[in-house]
Design a protein around this nucleic acid. Structure first.
Lengths: 291, 291
DNA sequence: TCATATCAATCGATAAAACCGATAACGAAA
DNA sequence: TTTCGTTATCGGTTTTATCGATTGATATGA
């Protein structure tokens, strides 16, 4: 039994299709077929049922999978551990972030790069849904978002809170509303709203607030790119709802508080529980939390 | 990185002596030396410090060891688990059964559990149609039913006959008919019948008998739960048609033979052909057949 | 100080195995 | 029935794991 075989097996089990699995593993289908067979021979029990053109996992396969997967992950964790042991002089950091937390991330990146110039940084903006998916696939080290992310998911996430920011009405500074100290939820009914698309954590939160308070404002624009959204709001026709923090560095936009409801959004660092945490991640988070 | 290398490494780390470790691993010292080196190359960091004729573990080696050891153990646990499965120390058995064969199943379950108390058993009562479907989807290990099941299906089923039982008229022991030695098919025309719903193998058989003999008795009640059916027959208003075996353990019901036609129903174990048969299934069937 | 014992590293050759492409075999779908 | 999508198998090639023999390094003891 070798890790190679376990890696092949887990992928095959996940896809239940040898051809596709082989392609993802960058080996030929024949190799995969042979390696699975040799693993089955060693275990003395079939891991898959072959029926016609399909394969199904057997009871033994299902049970064995748990061990195989853990084993592969453990080996990988060990590898990662050694990789960045001491050397924050190599390695790569992949950070997911919602646009609303850009202002928190930027200074931290600058500071981190000053301290550890050899660590490559990749920043990915996206919806929390998209990013949670990438996190689960180990394509991301951690993500920065508001904390009402997918909680129904089977695997567990670790939350480290950063700060809170109020959800506010965002309007152009030229708008009449910009003068007001605050508005009520009901005022929203008469405003044409431009909101982030489905999938953004803020949007999920907003929809929830609407539902609870039984109001259905006109959402006349949905868009999945926040800079563009801000640009459109700046132009004057629409208002939007975002956290106050989102526009903290925008001159031509004003955040008007929404009265009477709890609109506190908690920003947090989200990562996978029980997975080895890179040195670079630790160092980065130390900088981030210090602020 | 392969499990072989991790096995070599852990042993070497424990003994801090390549020559001895190699000997225990039944490989040459040169092989061990090379494999450790290739592991170190892949990790990009030395796991041992070579000082003169001695070796010492490095910090990286010490940390990596924890992962390597767990990984090796996990793989071994997975192996043992699968072996156990073959030895019936774990696992699950899902059995589908028509109500008419309950009396065959019960003692077999009791005996099986006595012999293999660690195997979980799940029993599903249902129509043969439903259960055949679940069998095809690998949600069931085998089913116990009368053998005129779906034969038109593309995939192939394996039948292992158990015994035969005559289809009889089932009446309350209080009924007048209960006294008779037998009745004819034509007598059925004048009786209000309560039959199992479509989908039950017995019902399929009954309908076939009616069709062949060109009679159309009054089916005044159809029901998809056999215990309830029996309860209603017991109350006295209806008669039913079921195998004699179905009422073998019922006091207040009598089975009256139907004359002049072949009403033999063959009970059988039905499973998928050409699919690996679990050890637990083999053991269970051995007990079932022995009776 | 020098010989010797004891270890790890290295080299070259060999055996094992992982791998690939081509093709067969199979069942499902058309 | 043919076609399509899939897995299994075969024969040949490449990679790599392994070995024995040798070298190099160093601790020990005469």
């Amino acid at each position: 039994m070798e890790l190679r075989q376990l890696r092949y097996f887990t992928r095959a089990k996940e896809l239940l299709n040898f051809t596709e699995a082989a392609s993802q593993l960058f080996i030929s289908q024949s190799t995969l077929s042979q390696q699975i067979k040799s693993l089955e021979d060693e275990l003395g029990i079939p891991l898959f049922n072959r029926v016609g053109k399909h394969i199904y996992i057997t009871e033994a396969g299902e049970l064995f999978y748990n061990y195989a997967l853990k084993c592969v992950h453990l080996a990988n964790d060990g590898y990662l551990l050694v990789q960045d042991l001491g050397n924050l002089h190599t390695g790569k950091l992949v950070i997911g972030v919602t646009f609303g937390l850009k202002h928190v991330l930027i200074p931290a990146i600058i500071e981190f790069n000053k301290q550890y110039p050899l660590v490559q940084i990749q920043v990915i903006f996206g919806t929390s849904t998209e990013m949670a998916e990438q996190l689960y696939q180990f394509k991301m080290d951690f993500l920065l978002t508001y904390d009402n992310v997918v909680n129904s998911n089977s695997r567990q996430l670790k939350y480290q809170p950063l700060f809170s920011s109020e959800l506010s009405l965002i309007v152009s500074s030229k708008s009449k509303i910009a003068q007001k100290n605050s508005i009520t939820l009901k005022d929203l009914n008469s405003l044409p709203l431009a909101l982030p698309a489905q999938g953004f954590s803020t949007r999920r939160f907003i929809d929830e607030v609407f539902r609870k308070n039984e109001i259905t404002p006109t959402v006349s624009l949905e868009i999945n790119d926040i800079p563009t959204l801000l640009e459109l709001v700046e132009a004057g026709s629409w208002s939007s709802i975002l956290t106050r923090a989102t526009v903290s560095d925008q001159k031509n936009l004003v955040a008007v508080p929404i009265r009477g409801i709890n609109t506190l959004q908690k920003a947090a660092v989200v990562s996978l529980k029980e997975v080895y945490e890179k040195q670079a991640v630790k160092a980065f988070l130390a900088i981030l939390m210090k602020k």
